[in-house]
Nucleic acid binder design. Structure first.
Lengths: 342, 342
DNA sequence: CTGAAAGCGCTTACAG
DNA sequence: CTGAAAGCGCTTACAG
């Protein structure tokens, strides 16, 4: 099945390839309406569709961008992808989605594949393992936007949550409700992933603001599979935390599993707030207080900035970190202590 | 920033473009190890990366496939995408992800864009609105695989859950636990989407198997936003259902919202099973009995079949419907009736 | 107003 | 064992 090409159309319409090309690119300035009609007709009759690859080869563009997410199974990634997709669709761009699984080797491969495929720009959740590569890319002026994470060594336009504020909102709410011993549960902190570090930092600052001491015993971090064990130790402390901040949806789920298995009362024994909105927040018993990220806005901003870079608009501008405000949705899991005594 | 091309490498290594191309395509049969080393060296020094678009133009392949999902926010879609991604990555293929939002117009645009971009094959969750288009595609022998949904008018290799079995498993479990009035909650049934129709069909057959009558009053279907209202009518029936099957994760969530807002006891007042595994199934109070789909296997099968089509292996074979078995995970929400009397 | 020619960066018979 | 030439399907000055 040979596909019909511009040449077929040209023959059919009795004009040259050039003229058909002019037509395709809407350069009607010097085209008689007769030829124009003939070409139009031929295209319909032959069901012609231009080969975008060939056009791209000549024009050095692929009308495609790449998105490399850390983990496509995270709801956050999905929502960001959707926002990017929407935006690109309106501009007749395509998006190639890559799932690096937080593996720098995969990340590198993807970047090379994407560039070999001449994508016009890349939005990436950087793993942190390819600093040199990103430095090169930046030097070559290739359009890149970072999502969710920073690489301190490589200043690039980045889209981030105001992570410190996210933690602060949670601590404020806990303090308001009478808590003085507040814990935090996180995936491994030594991986140096921006959101975790910044949320921890915001947590510390918020404690300070409320004149409370930071107690390392109240911090859990480790692989998801180890969290339940660590929670046990945590609650066996002589003076266990009465409130806990789950740094993301995955840790929140582990905490809830532990609570379920061990009949921990929420919020009586342990109040709870989770960063990331989860689908079940408003149906859980108790309903869950969460800190929401404006995921769609963040995704949209990322493509907007990328398109500006691709159009050469903001190349000169010093790369910025675009921060987005989280919002607390107060529900039952963070309710006031000792409610029953009121 | 001009990218380095095969010509640059050729000059640098003092050979012709042809020879470099031979090298790139691993045709070493007639190449002296000297030239081979020289080329190798030049490629490294110049940091050369072949332009895959140009290669594709010549070879008439793009090493890319397209995936058009009905809604990227569904967990099912995400997991399928991930499986496809994994598989493609191993074969140095890329995947362009498109989100049709169940809109036939968008779907059509995406298909045309993808073909214009010369993708080698497409996996699609068809909306049902582009029968003519798919007929044409099929006639042209272009590799396509349907996911999750069938188009009766267009036989194409399709990957589906055994939807009737999914409903049957749920009904069996309810019946085993003493229920005789079983309801079903679904998004709009008039949209003729395969999973809904087949699940309803399986539901009816299972009732029959157990010598129970099918009662249309026990069926809710409608827009997600209307489900809570309809549940109210439903439970106000003189003889309301004592057990309800949620046909997917979205309807399950609505049922749980309604139950929460109206203090409906699960499973005492209303037992519950949901098709689709949800993240919170094992932490909800009560834990939720669900019917799981083997999403990763299904995604993997879809790419495998697509690759076979692209390699021309199974073009002749009559298109098959590949069915996958769901699995019931029994938890608390479907527990036996009148437990408290035991 | 329209066409011939060159070129985008590759690959592939074919000649030598 | 290696190179010159043609061609993939477009676009774009440029000539007429």
């Amino acid at each position: 099945m040979k596909r019909t090409t511009i040449e077929d159309v040209a023959k059919h319409a009795n004009v040259s390839k050039s003229t058909v090309s002019q037509y395709l690119n809407n350069r009607f300035d010097y085209m008689s309406s007769k030829t124009r009609k003939r070409i139009e007709q031929s295209i319909i009759e032959l069901n012609y569709q231009p080969n975008i690859l060939a056009r791209g080869l000549k024009q050095k563009t692929s009308s495609t961008i790449g998105v490399i997410v850390a983990n496509i199974l995270h709801v956050f990634s999905t929502q960001v992808i959707r926002a990017i997709e929407d935006y690109c669709n309106k501009r007749d761009f395509h998006v190639i989605v890559c799932n690096a699984e937080d593996d720098p080797v995969k990340e590198k491969r993807y970047i090379e594949m994407l560039r070999a495929k001449q994508v016009d720009g890349i939005i990436v959740f950087p793993t942190g393992g390819n600093v040199e590569l990103y430095k090169e890319i930046k030097k070559s002026n290739y359009p890149v936007v970072f999502m969710d994470r920073l690489l301190p060594e490589v200043p690039v336009h980045s889209i981030l949550l105001d992570n410190e504020l996210a933690a602060e909102l949670a601590v404020d709410e806990f303090v308001k409700n009478g808590h003085r011993q507040i814990g935090l549960v996180s995936p491994p902190l030594e991986t140096k992933v921006t959101p975790r570090l910044e949320r921890l930092e915001g947590f510390k600052k918020a404690l300070e603001k409320h004149h409370m001491e930071y107690n390392p015993d109240y911090i859990i971090d480790g692989k998801i599979s180890s969290i339940k064990d660590k929670l046990k130790d945590f609650l066996a402390l002589p003076n266990p935390p009465t409130a806990v901040l789950a740094i993301n949806d995955r840790t929140l789920l582990e905490i809830l599993k532990y609570a379920k298995e061990n009949d921990i009362n929420i919020p009586e024994t342990m109040a709870l707030i989770g960063i990331d909105d989860v689908s079940y927040a408003s149906i859980y018993n108790p309903t869950l207080t969460t800190i929401e990220q404006p995921t769609f806005e963040m995704g949209k901003k990322a493509v907007q900035v990328l398109f500006e870079l691709m159009e050469g608009k903001n190349r000169k501008i010093e790369p910025e970190v675009h921060r987005f405000e989280p919002k607390i949705i107060v529900r039952e899991s963070s309710e006031e202590r000792l409610m029953q005594n009121e």
